[in-house]
Design a protein around this nucleic acid. Structure first.
Lengths: 349, 349
DNA sequence: ATTATTTTTGCAATCGATTGCTTAAATTAA
DNA sequence: TTAATTTAAGCAATCGATTGCAAAAATAAT
């Protein structure tokens, strides 16, 4: 892997008997260089299979044209779609995207941030992990004046922009939908309330119950993670109660799926006996034998907007960090798992 | 984003009235530095919030400790699991993983390679895109003596190591399983034959038919992509035939899912009338109402092994590129979609 | 033909960290 | 106390590309 044969601008300059400065300028289309030599340099560069050393360039210029994206997991449809959105928006501007996973560990998250900062990335996009409590590592990013944009899962830190879903509204809409389907005993499978998104979904749920004069029953709220098994477990808990729920609003699709599995195992009919609504519009929700109603978060759009916020920030080139907060509207995709009436199945995902 | 305040070893050296060289050595635990000054430097470095500039370091050392992974899509369970495997194996060795997507476009793939090479990564892991025909961009990697390891989808290029599944065997096993379930008219939803993996699966299928003296019917082979819709389309094609198949062996889970949807729409019972086997063991196959039999590729293991092959290669530090070919055994996970007999549902995924 | 002006190119410093070689300081031996 | 030896720290070059300023070459003006 030693490569003594890597071609540099000096190699080109020697070959052509001109200075490296001229080569550099020629390659960068500097107008001070005559067309003649520009073409000559371009030609020999290709001949010699020259490839720019972006390390050296970045070191000199102070920017790498790399941005980092930190997500809990890359294999969640939601996150990979956001990444796709960021890519599409930033690639045309010459940026490259470095994707990192925190695996929901605050520690990993901090390490990834350190790694990114030390490679001098030009910006960071991040959806914080569930276990993130302290903001030390985020302060570090700000200290370096590296633009930071939160998406979906954010922490409130002054000076940091964010693009999130209106999770409160989403929780409200989902619950309201279930109420309108005739459900009155609506359980909620919540995520960790420490994360704003889950807290907001939960509060939207509460508010909808209140608005429709339905009593809130604390026992109907079960905390789950994003594993299928936890959804199963949640049903087991709920069905120990005297008053069984007639609807499940899950803050995640995987838990919703688990819930449906367990309901089926118990021969409880969905949606006739229990309606189910999930969250995130994971692809499988649409393609189940019994498709699951779910909340779409327009993730790709979210990524694009996050990227735009970043671009704005770097364009201003100012040290003062702009703080921009974008909130996107959710869209409920109603499918069979919650459709008691023969319904207009608006399924446009 | 301008940050005139980034701390360098010079800042530390000035503060302590020692040379930058000493600071550098101290931070790197060079034994030539006394414990006293080492601690002093470490302390002030922390105080001043020093963060190493890995660009500069990499430029000097000639290695970045970054490796690139190029996959068609990150949101396929298979690929993200391979990436996870690579991460787990390489992170302890101080490497950072840069994840890139080709989106199945050879052009993107080439661009990603260029970008990675110009940032001087220490190695590349890659699963080639469907549209990759030419090997020019791969030759470039070899010219730079950058270690390259193919996983799953490879192209035959001398000097490149690879870790792949025994796809021929997998195709054989899947087909044999269907035969043993009593199927005789087995259709095959194949991927693009230009990719070795799909060609091998196809040939395994042919061989099994032959071994069991079943006539091969060309019309029973339909090319699909990895979209659900193409699986539906395939069933539409197959059901135009006079002799309808009694089994489907799909080279991909998404197509298998689409096929099952379409069969259901046509009121054709799975597995009673038609057995279905998919490929890749995507999580949804297990959690369907009617779980799909699928071929597991032990992706995380594949990633780990690929990483080990890479490590071996860099350890030898020799310019001569070792060529190592690892072939992993597939494992068929038999589920309801292909179990006519009451079966030992060996489901360990 | 000579000077003024415009183009084109080169010199050398710089980005931040590393490292071979040398020198200075500290320790031990004589 | 002085020389010999070990230990600690500094000098300066280097990695490859960029860029302000200066010099050289080419062109235009007088």
């Amino acid at each position: 892997m030693k490569s003594k044969d890597k071609v540099t601008i000096y190699d080109i300059s020697k070959r052509l008997n001109i200075s490296a400065a001229t080569v550099s300028r020629a390659l960068n289309h500097n107008p001070k260089i005559s067309e003649k030599t520009r073409e000559l340099v371009a030609k020999t560069a290709k001949e010699m299979n020259y490839k720019q050393n972006r390390l050296a360039q970045a070191l000199k210029q102070g920017r790498t044209n790399n941005v980092g994206v930190i997500v809990p997991y890359i294999n969640r449809s939601f996150f990979s779609s956001v990444i796709r959105g960021i890519e599409e928006e930033l690639t045309p501007h010459g940026y490259h995207i470095i994707i990192c996973q925190s695996h929901e560990e605050a520690e990993n998250e901090a390490e990834q941030i350190n790694a990114l900062l030390s490679t001098q990335i030009d910006g960071i996009f991040m959806s914080v992990s569930k276990t993130t409590q302290k903001t030390d590592h985020i302060q570090k990013v700000l200290q370096e004046h590296t633009p930071l944009v939160f998406f979906d899962r954010k922490i409130d830190v002054p000076g940091v922009s964010s693009v999130v879903l209106d999770d409160f509204r989403a929780g409200y809409i989902a619950t309201e939908h279930l109420i309108k389907e005739g459900c009155r005993k609506i359980a909620h499978l919540s995520g960790d309330i420490n994360l704003e998104i889950y807290k907001n979904r939960y509060e939207g749920y509460i508010k909808a119950l209140k608005d429709y004069h339905i009593d809130f029953i604390p026992n109907y709220v079960i905390e789950v993670n994003s594993k299928i098994e936890s959804g199963m477990q949640a049903i087991n808990e709920l069905w120990k109660l005297n008053e069984k729920p007639d609807a499940i609003f899950s803050a995640g699709d995987y838990a919703a799926l688990g819930a449906m599995q367990e309901l089926r195992a118990r021969k409880i009919k969905v949606p006739e006996e229990v309606c189910v609504v999930g969250f995130s519009n994971e692809p499988f929700t649409k393609y189940m034998e019994l498709p699951i109603t779910s909340m779409d978060q327009t993730p790709q759009e979210m990524g694009k907007i996050a990227a735009q916020v970043f671009l704005e920030q770097v364009k201003k080139n100012s040290t003062l960090s702009i703080e921009k907060k974008v909130v996107l509207p959710p869209e409920l995709l109603i499918r069979e798992s919650s459709s008691r009436k023969i319904h207009n199945l608006s399924d446009a995902s």
